[in-house]
Simulated assay, not measured.
Amino acid sequence: MKNILYILLAVFLFGCSKEDSLTQKLEYENLYVIEDDPSDPVKHQVYEIYQKYNVPVYFNDTIGKTLIKKDIHGISIYQYETLDLPWSFTSYSSLDYQYEYMTDAEEQLKALHVIENYLALVSKRLYPFNFFVVKSYTTKDGNDNVEKHGNGEYQIHIRTLLMTGDWANATIDDLPADMMRQMVKNKISNYQTLLTEFNSISKAAWYGVSYASLNPNHFEDLVSPNEFGWSGYGGIPPQYYFAPSCFPNTWWGCSEFTPEGLENFRTAVRKKIGLWGFVSSGRVGTYTPDDREKDLVAFISEMLSLSREEFEEKWGTSTLVMQKYEILYEIVANELGVEL
């Protein structure tokens, strides 16, 4: 009987010991919670962005710590958590990142202004998990090749949108929309079935060649020359004018046309390039896009700069362009929630 009692006691003590060994000893902290500091304008703005959008903003890659244990002297030992940018969904790159931190409060507030404008512009599907803002950074690969990045450059990583400072004023104004275009491009790669359909519309042989090689008569019969209001000799611009570079109002040739004539000329150019399903040119203005990747990027940029009604008004007579538009519209508007 005594032996049985000893056995039961041993089992009881072993069970307690085992249960104790499974008890969580680590004190995990929520690393991504942002605390408010009303006395600090930068920290307070970071907190307000987090409260409104649930997206943290960091100016240092060390973002938190976890209590591991206390040593024999009662001193806490922590494990520090840092943003690890080389990770992708399936691999880890060999790039080593070194940061020059942004410490000037005025510059930090500028960055937060850009970030808030971006988050206000896009849907939740285009939010990064977090923003990390530095003055500049360098990357070094396995062959010790070093590249420095700054002056408003940014990179979109698996969880982090990495931004640099030293912006020009014009860059700051354009940065939210530019980041949105790049984020849309990144997200679009997840919709391979629709992208394959998009890529099938313009034939492979149409990329990286002159528009003239696709249609020797592409400069003729687009619109009557007297409708251009061009001030140059002969009433019709030279062939190298017929390029998508004429679309922005900053184009150097704008002043050579009457206002109405310039719009007629742009319509003629859209008819010319839209015949092949393109809204842009290649490295040479009178050439088609170099490849499907550049075609896609240009198409996204054109889509996001215009409402649906404006896009149809400008490109509606180009059947192939509109076919490609409808495919991307399904992704951009219906899947990613970007309002067009």
Results as ranks from 00 to 15, higher is better:
158 I>F: 14
7 I>C: 11
217 N>T: 11
44 H>M: 07
263 E>N: 01
4 I>F: 09
72 I>P: 00
93 S>H: 03
41 P>G: 10
82 T>V: 11
271 K>Y: 03
155 Q>W: 07
233 Y>L: 15
226 N>I: 00
303 M>G: 06
281 S>K: 05
139 T>H: 05
277 G>C: 05
296 L>G: 15
206 W>C: 03
213 S>Q: 06
251 W>I: 10
328 L>Q: 12
69 K>G: 00
114 V>Y: 01
227 E>G: 01
91 S>C: 01
195 L>R: 12
266 R>K: 15
288 T>Y: 04
202 S>C: 06
24 Q>H: 08
114 V>M: 12
110 K>C: 03
303 M>H: 03
278 F>Y: 03
301 S>I: 01
238 P>L: 08
245 S>T: 11
45 Q>F: 08
290 D>M: 05
107 E>P: 00
273 I>V: 13
250 T>I: 10
202 S>G: 10
308 R>Q: 05
337 G>A: 14
157 H>S: 10
208 G>Y: 06
241 Y>F: 15
252 W>S: 13
327 I>K: 04
212 A>C: 03
256 E>I: 00
11 V>N: 09
307 S>L: 11
227 E>Q: 14
202 S>W: 00
264 N>T: 05
321 V>W: 10
24 Q>P: 15
213 S>V: 02
59 F>D: 08
230 W>H: 09
200 S>W: 02
131 F>C: 12
305 S>Y: 02
114 V>N: 08
80 Y>N: 06
74 G>S: 02
154 Y>V: 08
64 G>W: 02
306 L>T: 03
189 S>K: 15
126 L>M: 08
